[in-house]
Design a protein around this nucleic acid. Structure first.
Lengths: 159, 159
DNA sequence: CGATATAGCACTAGAATAGTGCGCTTTCCC
DNA sequence: GGGAAAGCGCACTATTCTAGTGCTATATCG
């Protein structure tokens, strides 16, 4: 269904949240109280992001998570890979490498290599998109609560 | 799961096959005998493509399907829309328009509009990809006439 | 020590997809 | 004209994936 999973959405929201508080340790509870995201599920997601080294964890009473790198060093692609695996677009690619290297009709499959190109395009798009570019150009946390975008003031998002 | 469905794969394979035989009426049986695709399922897919006016159907004993337009007039986007609906990338977009126009956290959702851009990018990619570009540049029997890409082999396409 | 937070595993429920059954209609061809 | 072949339409089953939850263990701050 050519759509990101909820896990990925939640992960991105959490990452953006953490990016806004760069350096601070943020707990799952804190994030889940800001958005209608099930706490336990978000916890699972953060664990995955931690395993993928996108965030660092701190255990114990005042524990939580912190971005492992700067926001412009974290790509959408990396997040997607961490939370739902490398996208494949066709089932060929999902199964092929695991089985015997082919999808069974590989030698006659007329859409294989062209679709690869598409996949590459999508993939490239996600690799080029950094967490930073997902951030709103608004510095104040309070603004997050209040602001829909009135008319995109002074900032220019990305070149 | 950022992946095309089997239906879409099957549809593309069928379309490519039909493009190779532009003008001829091709039956579901014929296609399903060339590839390991369940006949009945392929039939469902072709029906959907027919409803979307991407192919024309001919009933009766020697019936089958034919491309409704030239291969370069059929986009991957149109096929995807016909077989799995317009892609949405986030659940916001899937539900939002149906419900009350918002996903519930829309006003605070930090990833909404940036992710929209991504979606647009993916969508644009699919809209720009035509069935023709999925074809192998093989100088096949009847030749697809209308002239393939400029990088073609030693074959001066056509008038 | 106790409260709080992450770590890990396993499990349930629901939705979406893959694939099938069956009867009807249309059309070619003998 | 009648049968075979092909599409049409609907409904149905099965499998897979995702969303979300339960429980327990471990770590750390105060």
């Amino acid at each position: 269904m050519l759509q990101l999973t909820k896990r990925t959405e939640y992960g991105l929201i959490a990452l953006v949240y953490m990016a806004d508080r760069a350096g601070e340790i943020v707990s799952v509870r804190e994030i889940s109280e800001q958005y209608p995201i099930p706490r336990r599920l978000l916890a699972e997601v953060l664990k995955d992001l931690c395993r993928a080294n996108l965030v660092h964890s701190h255990r114990g009473a005042t524990g939580g998570y912190v971005l492992a790198r700067a926001a412009d060093q974290i790509t959408l692609g990396a997040v997607v890979v961490a939370l739902e695996g490398r996208p494949s677009l066709t089932s060929c690619e999902t199964l092929a490498p695991a089985v015997h290297g082919e999808c069974g009709i590989e030698h006659i499959c007329p859409i294989r290599s062209p679709l690869h190109r598409i996949r590459e395009g999508v993939w490239h798009l996600m690799e080029r998109t950094t967490l930073r570019s997902l951030l709103r150009p608004k510095p104040i946390p309070v603004a997050i609560v209040a602001g829909t975008e009135p008319n995109d003031p002074p900032h220019s998002p990305t070149p």
